[in-house]
Amino acid sequence: MQEQGGERDGRMTDAGLNDAAGTPAGAAALQVGAFTLASRLVVGTGKYASYAEMARCLEASGTDCVTVAVRRERLLNAAGENILDHLDLSRYTLLPNTAGCFSATDAVRVARLGRELLRDLGNAGSEWVKLEVLGDQKTLLPDPVGTLEATEQLVADGFSVLVYTSDDPIVARRLKDLGAASVMPAGSPIGSGQGVLNANNLSICLEYLKDGDPDYPVIVDAGVGTASDVAAAMELGVDGVLLNTAIAHAADPLRMARAMRAACDAGRDAFLAGRIPRKRYATASSPETDRITPAALSPN
């Protein structure tokens, strides 16, 4: 710590540091509906080179909640490996998604199939769903109308709905009003690795969604490219980050999983710590007083 002034010293002794300082950011649980997550990272299980690598990366990321997709069973290859052989269900809550659905009707069908699969497994994740209703194949951006329709239907059907949406604050607020358990704005398009493109919109989403309801969970879903993207999102005050490709397609996925975990904790701590305001000009960190007498200007 470079700053040394009376005011600074005073603050350090007053502040409730005994609580915060010793507690790593990751230790504070994230509550989403009826679910309590120890980690604020939700990690996808797609695109890994192998299930073994996936399992190692999930462990290194520190997550306790992983997303899965629902797809047709390949009838001709019943002897093939199933992802469930590689996921410790006592450790991870599964969050089934409706990825690949381009209509509210299909998303609702897939959500119900996912619920049936998870009920069979006895996994708590059967009661929730990560809802995606996509607008087109090229951008994979959400279809806002279909997303609103499907949210309404799934909430009525008893689901805890975690809903993928754009960073539009108005749509975000309408999704919450319909009963979504968590609104999950995209930082940038799925798998694009561009991070949070519109921090301003994301901040407004947070302001609207947490107005009078500070614990309402907001999770950035999609767009993360590297660790600093996670930290930046967390510093804005989002409650968690959902990512997949940034780990699975990193040159060294295991190391990136570790980096994501650290970034998530760092970003959360920085948010809770409260950043200094941005200023146009400098503010000295060393005392302004008691400096030695400046030397006479040399003639030039």
């Binding site: 996808g44 299980t45 797609g46 695109k47 890994y48 299930y51 996936m54 997303t67 899965v68 997709a69 629902v70 797809r71 047709r72 069973e73 009838l75 199933n82 992802i83 469930l84 599964l94 089934p96 998604n97 990825a99 199939l113 996912g114 699969l117 799925i190 798998g191 999609a222 959902l242 990512l243 997949n244 490709t245």
Partner: peptide, 10 residues
Amino acid sequence: LEIVTLVGGG
């Protein structure tokens, strides 16, 4: 009929 299972996904 649709017969589905879980696969990796994000």
